[in-house]
Design a protein around this nucleic acid. Sequence first.
DNA 1: TTAGGCAGTTTCCTCTAGGAAACCACTTCC
DNA 2: GGAAGTGGTTTCCTAGAGGAAACTGCCTAA
Lengths: 122, 122
Amino acid sequence: MKKKAVVNDTAVCQVRMQAISDTMSILSGKWKFHILGTLIEGNKLGFMDLLREVNGIGTKMLSKELQDLEMNRLVSRTVMNTKPITVEYSLTEYGETLSPVINELAKWGVEYRKSVYGDTQV
Amino acid sequence: MKKKAVVNDTAVCQVRMQAISDTMSILSGKWKFHILGTLIEGNKLGFMDLLREVNGIGTKMLSKELQDLEMNRLVSRTVMNTKPITVEYSLTEYGETLSPVINELAKWGVEYRKSVYGDTQV
DNA sequence: TTAGGCAGTTTCCTCTAGGAAACCACTTCC
DNA sequence: GGAAGTGGTTTCCTAGAGGAAACTGCCTAA
């Protein structure tokens, strides 16, 4: 009876689904959210800083993910002309538009922990 | 000089990073966001409905992802006693707490499309 | 001069996420 | 009696995501 109603929604969903696909393909992989989350907090960080902050990541993955993020104009890479050459990674202005997404994700994760381990435990 | 400042932040980040890890591990895989996004819009949907709405997914993956989501109390599965047996999948109350996350994700994806194809194109 | 820090690249290997297709059981429509 | 719809499970296969470790190259401090 109401099966047609679902089909009618399809056009509406299509835009949403496409949007979700887009976002997830850009933020694909195990580490993008972590890197972005760290850069939101850390502002400007070097390669080794990120390697230390992003728990468990290795040099190959960090390098590759940063390249991906740079290609999508979410992260900027600046080579500083310091004594030993250093590199500064930071969010671009555009990358900062992801803050709400990452923050919602983090917020939910915090609530999830509470619901699993109880509010007493922090 | 200021390198110590980064180290000081670590404790703060740790909670955040853990939260992001938790969320992403629960929503891991290619399809969870799509399924949840569809259920947010569609309210109550059957297996075949989801198979049609979630573009590109196959029966095996849909089945597996739904089981994952059910195990994490995000989705409920109700067998209806109808003539040909039907099943209703819907978000649990807890699953609905994910709406802000999914919605931010979708919102960002929409803006992303605009920035790529221009505002003229919808 | 050698050890250590920065910033990666390259190679090699493994594991598993995910797709295609076949199959199952049950019902109802024609 | 067979086609079609519901709701899956099982098997088989492979592309590629991701880890470990070694290597590069440059600079500095002890």
